[in-house]
Amino acid sequence: MALLQRLIEQAKKPNGFVGSVMLRIMNVAHSGMNTWLIKHGDVYDGDIVLDIGCGGGKTLQTLSKMNPAGKIYGIDFSEQAVKDSIKTNKMDVANGKVIVKQASVSNIPYTDQFFDTITAFQTHYFWPDLANDVKEVFRVLKHGGKFIIMSELYKIHYHMKAYKTTSEIEQLFESVGFQKIQIIQNARKGCLCIIGMK
Rank of each mutant, 00 (worst) to 15 (best):
P109Q: 07
Y158V: 05
A103I: 00
F115Q: 02
K71I: 05
V93I: 10
I148F: 03
F147T: 03
G177W: 04
Q179C: 01
N132H: 13
I183F: 10
M197G: 02
K155T: 06
Y110K: 01
L23N: 13
T119Q: 02
Q185R: 14
M197T: 14
I38M: 12
K189I: 07
I38F: 01
K13F: 00
E79M: 10
Q80L: 07
V98F: 13
N132C: 01
A11Y: 01
Q122D: 15
A69D: 07
I48A: 08
E170T: 15
K90T: 11
P109V: 04
K12A: 11
K87I: 07
K101M: 11
V93T: 11
F114L: 02
K87M: 11
S85W: 09
L63D: 01
Y154M: 08
L37V: 11
M33K: 07
G145C: 03
Q10F: 03
L3S: 12
P109G: 05
N15T: 09
A69H: 11
Q102M: 12
I118G: 06
T117D: 04
Q122Y: 05
F77H: 12
K198V: 06
L4T: 12
D45Q: 04
A94S: 13
N89A: 12
Y73G: 05
N186P: 04
D92E: 15
D133N: 12
D129E: 10
N95L: 04
G53F: 07
G32D: 08
I194C: 14
A103W: 02
D51P: 04
E174N: 13
I194V: 15
L172F: 10
K90Y: 08
S78A: 14
I183T: 15
R6F: 09
S78M: 11
Q179S: 10
I8R: 13
V176E: 05
R24S: 13
I108P: 08
D129N: 15
N15K: 13
H30F: 05
V100M: 13
M33L: 09
A11G: 06
D51S: 06
M22A: 12
